[in-house]
Simulated assay, not measured.
Amino acid sequence: MPSNRTISPHGATPLTTRHEPRLIRETGLDARIADLAEPVIEDLGYRLVRVKCSGRNGFTVQIMAERPDGTIGVDDCETISRNLAPVIDADDPVDRAYHLEVSSPGIDRPLVRRSDFERWAGHVAKIELSEGHDGRRRFRGVLVGLRDDTFGIRLDDVPEGTPDTVWLPVSLLSEARLIMTDDLIAASFRAAKKALAEDPAEVEEVEEDEDASPGSSVH
């Protein structure tokens, strides 16, 4: 039977655990909803990636989630939405009608855990720190992995003769996400083809954007 499970650009590389803490946390209403959502999502066997409230479609609460192996599909999103909606409604943190949308992180996904920086090494990311590091808060470059309590990023905008790789403290992370590139898209399709070759009976669906495979409901 065909599956709706999506494949991350590096395929289903196992992550550490669904209980691995996030480095980047929400604030305000987003944080309150995240506190409600995270235990529900983990109990179902998934991991919370991000909560974001916006004025889209009146008011939308977007929940990004994934399996511990980095995949997510339509059925998974619907399962999370069905179990999470009553919990949010019971606590009633949103003072208006809202749309609850559960989706995959997308190819150009947020990076919120230490394992994300290992999994996505070799791809371009945009980084923002909570405070300056050597006088700079924003960086764009190729991720090169982790070293102790720092992550490396290879920059393309450094003066000639200076090191092109900087190691930034994970404790200063404010925002981090992958940048959509041809290499990232190509890696996604290669992973999908590999999955098909390993199990021809299972049809994998590669997501095109962060709203792929949503489970949505109105409250």
Results as ranks from 00 to 15, higher is better:
161 G>S: 11
153 I>A: 12
155 L>W: 10
159 P>A: 14
148 D>G: 01
152 G>W: 08
175 E>F: 09
164 D>P: 01
168 L>W: 08
172 L>H: 04
168 L>I: 13
154 R>D: 15
146 L>Q: 03
164 D>W: 02
148 D>P: 04
155 L>I: 15
167 W>V: 15
158 V>M: 13
171 S>Q: 05
174 S>T: 03
152 G>C: 11
162 T>C: 09
175 E>V: 08
152 G>P: 09
170 V>L: 05
149 D>E: 06
166 V>Q: 06
161 G>I: 14
160 E>I: 00
147 R>C: 11
151 F>D: 11
168 L>V: 10
167 W>G: 15
157 D>S: 07
170 V>E: 01
163 P>H: 01
147 R>P: 03
162 T>R: 15
171 S>Y: 06
155 L>H: 12
150 T>L: 11
167 W>L: 14
150 T>H: 14
172 L>P: 03
153 I>R: 09
163 P>D: 02
165 T>G: 07
153 I>G: 11
167 W>M: 13
150 T>C: 13
159 P>H: 06
164 D>Y: 05
159 P>W: 02
154 R>P: 09
153 I>F: 10
157 D>T: 10
168 L>T: 07
157 D>Y: 07
160 E>P: 00
164 D>Q: 11
170 V>Y: 03
169 P>A: 03
172 L>F: 00
170 V>T: 13
157 D>H: 07
160 E>R: 02
160 E>S: 07
155 L>R: 15
165 T>Y: 02
160 E>K: 01
151 F>K: 01
147 R>T: 14
169 P>V: 03
165 T>A: 08
149 D>Q: 03
175 E>D: 13
166 V>P: 00
163 P>L: 05
175 E>T: 10
171 S>P: 02
173 L>Q: 05
159 P>G: 01
146 L>M: 15
172 L>I: 02
158 V>A: 10
170 V>H: 00
154 R>G: 12
158 V>D: 03
162 T>N: 08
169 P>K: 07
158 V>C: 07
153 I>Y: 09
169 P>M: 03
155 L>F: 15
164 D>R: 13
148 D>Q: 02
169 P>S: 03
